[in-house]
Design a protein around this nucleic acid. Sequence first.
DNA 1: CACGGCGGAGAACGTGCGTTCTCCAAGGCT
DNA 2: AGCCTTGGAGAACGCACGTTCTCCGCCGTG
Lengths: 177, 177
Amino acid sequence: MDSTEATGRLLEAAEDLFYAHGVQAVGMDAVRERSGVSLKRLYQCFPAKNDLVEAYLLRRDERWRGSLREFVHARGDDPLAVFAWLKNWFAEPGFRGCAFINSFGEFGEPAPGIAAAIRKHKDEVRAYLRSLLPGRDTADQLFALVEGATVLAAITGDPGEADTAREAAKVLLAAQG
Amino acid sequence: MDSTEATGRLLEAAEDLFYAHGVQAVGMDAVRERSGVSLKRLYQCFPAKNDLVEAYLLRRDERWRGSLREFVHARGDDPLAVFAWLKNWFAEPGFRGCAFINSFGEFGEPAPGIAAAIRKHKDEVRAYLRSLLPGRDTADQLFALVEGATVLAAITGDPGEADTAREAAKVLLAAQG
DNA sequence: CACGGCGGAGAACGTGCGTTCTCCAAGGCT
DNA sequence: AGCCTTGGAGAACGCACGTTCTCCGCCGTG
């Protein structure tokens, strides 16, 4: 197993474990066990846990936004499709809310790289929503709905929060034109 | 110092520290130091850290909702006043987002009491918003906006997220009547 | 075959922290 | 005064975990 494959397996394991149980609750040994990569190589690829966490967040950002973009694009870039995607996500087994919001809660004073990854994700999502809509204000309003629905679905466990947000988005879009 | 005063001082210290730095980042020794209560009595009042965390959340829920209710009531129970209150909150020094959302992120699989306290808070806030509005659906939509604005203000540090949510709320209220 | 290094497995180390224990001073009661 | 209880200060314990170290088998090369 070469170093790039090890990195891939580590990121895979890290994403599964960190998202499911939280970053702090998962030890490096659990990542090693799940990935099948030795501890020595783990620390060659990621000199410290913070580096692994940062890479996990960056990778999850890419995949998460890629999945959303693809789904919405297949529906003619209809902004309302965002909420259909959300509902699917909320209903997935193992859904535990937004990894970035959760990480923000975990790290009171996060390492700079982690804080930057969290902000980057939210900035990119906001920019994506703006790209879907003519009006910047409406996009930002939908963004707040997306975040709110995600948080509430995570806490209550009810995927229906996506529908509530979708109805609100429909009204906002109609009002804006 | 009797036991009830000790409990009060402990809760005060716990709220300051837990909210500012996160629960996991604050040791029981820090709570002891800040409260001026001995470790022995601390463990008499709260047999384990989880009990203190749970009490902290329950107390914060009461105070937070009390502050919001009072502010909004003084403005004729206008639902839009909720967003004015939010903006003040976001602009407070030391604002770090919603304590309950942060705690949800910190505890992957929270102790039952902590999970219950988090859900209770969100349920109570939702019920409060419903009490302000004739339409249950509109109230739930505003709730999503409130949560989204809070999360985004915490991550970006921009209190202006409250204004974005307020504009959306205005549209939703006008559409509903 | 001897040898040198690469990599894996897992022990070991240091630290932080939740929780408990030890010791001692102060104060009320007889 | 003598004694017993209460409570405080802080040491001590146990454990978890991030990180590093040790040992050893495996491989290619002379």
